[in-house]
Design a protein around this nucleic acid. Structure first.
Length: 427
DNA sequence: TCTGGGGTCCTAGGACCC
DNA sequence: TCTGGGGTCCTAGGACCC
């Protein structure tokens, strides 16, 4: 049996933990650049605010209902996530942290009548320890646990056990295919076209047909819905196979120099992530593009892949390559909205094929990077590469950022700087 | 005016090998 | 006119997730 614990309206709940004045008030959290709504409190959902809607399109609604609006504060959400996961981990022999706000727990071997009390206990403890409300679904497969979790939300019970065959049948018949974990937009439409509307309809289709039309991935989903586990608990977080750092700019950029500073900064971030997992990259791609939403402006989008020889995780070498790539694709006369860097084709850093005359992989360079990482642990801007520049002309728009309550000494909640603010939307 | 960021897996088809 | 059989590796594109 698997339990799926899912934080309710996670980012919105995080904002509330340190700001009780927000209770019972509609709260939304915006994506980077204060662009789209990416989290909504229950009250905000009831106002009809849809997931992913651009904030500017619902400006009036937000003002009229005094919705509290926040820029995303990933330092805060990441920190609270760790606390939630630590609490969850104390309840099960193994746990898979599936995303920032979700975890699967192994609850096999627990007597049927014990499942619900356990779930309630988990929920109470997480709430007490962190202030974050979670919903819990329990079922024989991960896909069914996802459905159970959905039912927990739907019924407002916060806990839902899906075990008996007749219960499973009933839930499947009431769930549309688009609400199944693993069935996205394309497949949902495809299934509908073939007359399959509910999850139960999907389970009635022949295996071979599913396999032919939806690959083995679709077949696994079907089996999981039938109660046969095909997706196991992944406790170990595997190393990444690709690492990407990209941002949209608060203000469109037209000069090469600003783009170079941004690309250098993204590259350094990728290099840090590479070193964290002890990988070195063989390829680096840099991309830039204009704002595709602006049909009235000239459009331009290019990327360039550069092969790194030898493979490296050295910030200096990577920045050199990325900037060279950028210079090759940059064209004057466009308003660039976004840039990014992706590193791929990793090898373990201990297995880099050395080349004659290679400076980058020298032991001194490795030590230098280690020292830089150490110095930057507290503050990311302690040591920078000159190409990153000193300004951040390309920075994000973040006009409604909440304090780093739990991650920055200067912003911690304490007498003297305990200023509880209620934000309302006005431009 | 204003529209996010970061990943994974699978398959088909082409290039290439003997 | 006729034109083999069997394999691997790589990549692009499409699907999905949060």
């Amino acid at each position: 049996m698997f339990a799926l614990a899912d934080c309710n309206n996670f980012y919105a709940s995080c904002e509330r933990v340190f700001n009780p004045a927000l209770r019972n008030r509609p709260v939304v959290v915006l994506s980077n650049n204060d662009g789209c709504v990416i989290a909504r409190s229950q009250e905000a959902k009831q106002l009809g605010i849809r997931m992913g809607v651009p904030a500017f399109q619902i400006e009036k609604l937000l003002t009229d209902h005094q919705v509290a609006i926040f820029s995303s504060n990933y330092a805060l959400y990441g920190d609270l996530s760790v606390r939630v996961m630590n609490t969850l981990a104390s309840f099960a022999p193994s746990i898979e942290v599936y995303s920032i706000d979700e975890a699967f727990l192994d609850v096999s071997g627990i007597r049927e009548e014990e499942l619900e009390p356990l779930a309630r206990r988990i929920r109470q403890t997480v709430l007490k320890n962190t202030g974050i409300p979670v919903g819990i679904g329990i079922a024989p497969t991960k896909t069914l646990a996802k459905l159970a979790n959905r039912m927990a939300k739907k019924t407002r019970e916060a806990v839902f056990i899906l075990r008996k065959e007749e219960d499973i049948r009933k839930v499947l018949s009431e769930t549309s295919v688009s609400d199944i974990w693993g069935i996205g937009n394309q497949h949902a439409r495809f299934l509908n076209q073939h007359g399959m509307v509910s999850a139960l309809d999907l389970t009635a289709a022949p295996d071979e047909w599913i396999r032919k039309n939806m690959t083995v991935v679709g077949l696994r989903t079907k089996k999981e819905l039938e109660g046969t586990p095909c997706i196991s608990l992944e406790e170990m977080v595997p190393d990444k196979k690709a690492i990407c750092t990209s941002r949209s700019f608060g203000v469109p950029q037209k000069e090469l120099q600003q783009l170079e500073e941004a690309v250098a900064t993204f590259t350094v971030r990728c290099a840090e992530k590479l070193r964290q997992q002890h990988s070195a990259a063989t390829k680096i791609m840099v991309f830039i593009h204009t704002n595709a939403f602006r049909a009235d402006q000239p459009q331009y989008a290019r990327n360039r892949v550069i092969t790194l020889s030898p493979p490296t995780n050295n910030s200096i070498a990577l920045v050199k390559a990325a900037v060279a790539g950028l210079r090759a694709i940059f064209r004057k006369g466009y308003l660039y909205k976004k840039a990014g860097v992706i590193v791929t084709d990793f090898v373990p850093e201990t297995e880099i094929q050395q080349e004659i005359f290679a400076v980058q992989a020298s032991p001194r360079m490795k030590k230098l990077m280690e020292s830089v990482d150490k110095l930057n642990r507290e503050n990311k801007t302690t040591v920078k590469i000159a190409t990153q520049g000193s300004g951040r002309d390309w920075k994000l728009r973040q006009e409604r950022l909440s304090p780093g309550y739990s991650t920055r000494w200067g912003e911690i909640m304490a007498e003297g700087n305990c200023e509880i603010r209620a934000y309302s939307y006005s431009i």
